[in-house]
Structure formats: C-alpha cells, structure tokens
Amino acid sequence: MTTLAPPLDEAFAVPADAARLDRTAANLRERGYLVHLVDTAEQARRLVRELLPRDEEIFTAASETLRLSGIAADIDESGEFRSVRRDAPSPGADVVAQIRLGALPDVVVGSVHAVTEDGQLVVGSASGSQLAPYASGARRAIWVVGAQKVVPDLATGIRRVHAYSLPREWQRLQDLYGQSSFIGKILIVEREALPERATIVLVRETLGF
C-alpha cells in the first residue's frame, strides 16, 4: 500500500445547485427511493430521528456524514435507539465476526460517495462492511447525502470515489491513527426493488466526503 496520499480533486467538493438537486431527487424517486430534500445538516438530523424506529436494531455505517451531522451520536450514544454498535461486544481478533454484526440489522443508516443525476448510487469501501446491509441485508436503509456528492453520470461517480472520497479518508486516518486507506470494493445501486425500503435524505449543503 502506498505511503503517499492519493491526489485530491477539489472539484468534487462543489455542491450541486438547486436545479440539479431537484432533478436528481425526481430521478431517485423514479428508481424506487423515498426522497427528502432538506436545507441543512441539522434538518437532516431531525428528520432521521423522526424516521427511525425505537424498537428495532439500527446499524450506523462508518460515515463522516453521520459523525459531522450528529446523527451517529444520536443513534449510538443517546440511549434512545437500539444501536448495534453500542450493544456489540468489544472488538477482538475476529474481524469477520465484527463485520457480520452489522450485516443484517433491521435498519442501516449511512451515506454514499456519489449520486448520479440519473439516480444511481456509488459507495466505495475498504473492507466492504457496510455494503451487505446497504445492498439487501437491512430491511430498511436510510442514506444522508450532501449536495457535493451529486455527479453527472456513473463514470464520474466512480472517479469521485477514487479522486476525492479516498484521499479525504486516507488523510483522516493518517491524522488520527497514522494509517492509510484504499478502495477494496465498490457498490453500484441502480434502483430499489422493494417499495419504501430505502430513503435518501439529500442535503442542500456540503456534508461529509
């Protein structure tokens, strides 16, 4: 693994304008998603709290979007929800066992790295731990997505994963733990087959990476 941070393309930090967000939301609905457009991260936080059940297991995927918005803390630390992360045993040597804990929750909450204007979702991951519940393991999925993650097409979405999300995550891990990162797996979601399974909260401001 390289010890140098991948090049960062700051063009992917620019939020989409209102017209592009509205077009993206309409196309996401056509692909089977429930979509909410909100103005701020705080509004997204309040909405997610309203959407979440109090009597079902909820898994928070590792996400700067959830951390920065306060959604992760609401779910994992408030005691109001049945958090898979909070109730999990202390991490041990069995990494696979830890990953499997979050594979089949009632609800998964997280984000994605790109949303195309046509309504496709792109998620990059090193281990792939969040991809199983995202794709089908969770009965319900809620994704909170900042406006800077909207891209014109699928090829640009995949490029965003490598040229923006990875360098930002690489630097975050370097700063915190002296570690680097990589893209091990990429999930592309074309549409949702089950009615009302997946909800996307589009935020009209920059949030996460």
Rank of each mutant, 00 (worst) to 15 (best):
I183Y: 02
A135C: 00
S165Q: 13
A114Y: 02
G208S: 12
K185R: 15
S63L: 00
Y164W: 10
V150L: 14
D9A: 11
S181P: 03
Q148G: 01
R204H: 09
I158F: 10
H162E: 14
K149M: 03
A135V: 05
A25E: 09
P195C: 04
L101F: 03
G157L: 05
G124F: 10
W143Q: 11
V35C: 12
S111V: 09
R139M: 06
A126N: 13
I183R: 03
R20Q: 13
P15M: 08
G119C: 12
A193G: 09
G119E: 14
A155M: 13
T199G: 01
E42H: 15
T199A: 06
R23V: 07
E42V: 09
S69V: 03
Q120H: 13
I71D: 02
E10M: 12
R160H: 05
I75T: 06
R20Y: 05
G146W: 01
A198P: 11
L47H: 03
T156C: 02
G70Y: 08
P133W: 00
R139K: 15
S127I: 09
R29V: 04
R140E: 02
G102Y: 01
T40E: 07
T156Q: 11
Y177R: 14
F209V: 12
P15W: 05
R100S: 04
I188K: 06
N27M: 07
A97H: 05
S83Y: 01
A126Y: 02
G110Y: 10
A193H: 08
S181T: 08
L154Y: 01
E10T: 15
V115S: 08
E80Q: 15
T199F: 00
A18D: 14
T3E: 13
L202K: 05
S181H: 07
V108E: 00
A62P: 00
I142L: 05
A132W: 01
S83E: 05
V95A: 11
A19Y: 06
R168N: 07
T60L: 06
K149I: 04
Q171V: 00
H162F: 12
I186S: 08
S129E: 04
S165V: 05
A132L: 10
R23F: 14
E42K: 13
D9N: 15
H36P: 04
E56H: 02
I188P: 08
F59R: 00
D153F: 03
K185F: 08
L4F: 09
P133A: 03
G137E: 00
E196A: 14
K149F: 04
P152H: 14
L4V: 08
P195H: 14
L176V: 09
E205S: 08
A103H: 01
A147G: 02
R49V: 01
